[in-house]
Computed example of a mutant assay.
Amino acid sequence: MSKFISKMVVGLGFLAATFAATPASAQSSAMITTGITSQPVGHYEFCKRYPGTCQPNASVGVVSLTRAMWTKLVEVNNAVNSAIFPRTDEEMYGVPEVWSYPTVQGDCEDYVLLKQYMLQREGLPASALLITVLRQSNGEGHAVLTVRTDQGDYVLDNLDDRVLAWGDTDYEYLKRQSERDAGKWLAIADDRNILVGSVR
Rank of each mutant, 00 (worst) to 15 (best):
Q120K: 14
P125M: 07
L129W: 11
V144H: 01
G139I: 13
Q120I: 15
G123V: 12
A143E: 08
A126F: 10
H142A: 04
L124G: 11
A143V: 14
L145Y: 07
E140W: 02
R121E: 14
G139C: 12
P125Y: 05
R148H: 15
A143C: 01
S127K: 09
E122D: 15
R121A: 14
S137G: 03
S137H: 00
Q136M: 14
L119Y: 05
V144P: 02
Q120H: 03
V144G: 01
G141A: 06
L119W: 07
L124T: 08
T132F: 09
L130W: 06
S127M: 05
E122C: 10
T146N: 07
N138M: 04
T146K: 07
R135T: 05
L134D: 08
A143L: 10
R135N: 12
S127Q: 01
L119Q: 08
G139P: 05
L145C: 00
A126M: 10
R135A: 02
S127T: 08
R148N: 10
S137I: 11
L145A: 05
Q120L: 13
G123H: 12
V133C: 09
S127G: 11
V144I: 00
N138R: 14
H142L: 14
Q136C: 11
G123S: 11
R148V: 06
Q136A: 13
R148E: 14
V144Y: 09
T132M: 12
L119G: 01
N138V: 02
V144T: 12
G141M: 05
P125L: 08
L145N: 04
L130F: 05
L124M: 15
V147F: 03
E140Q: 15
A128E: 02
E122T: 07
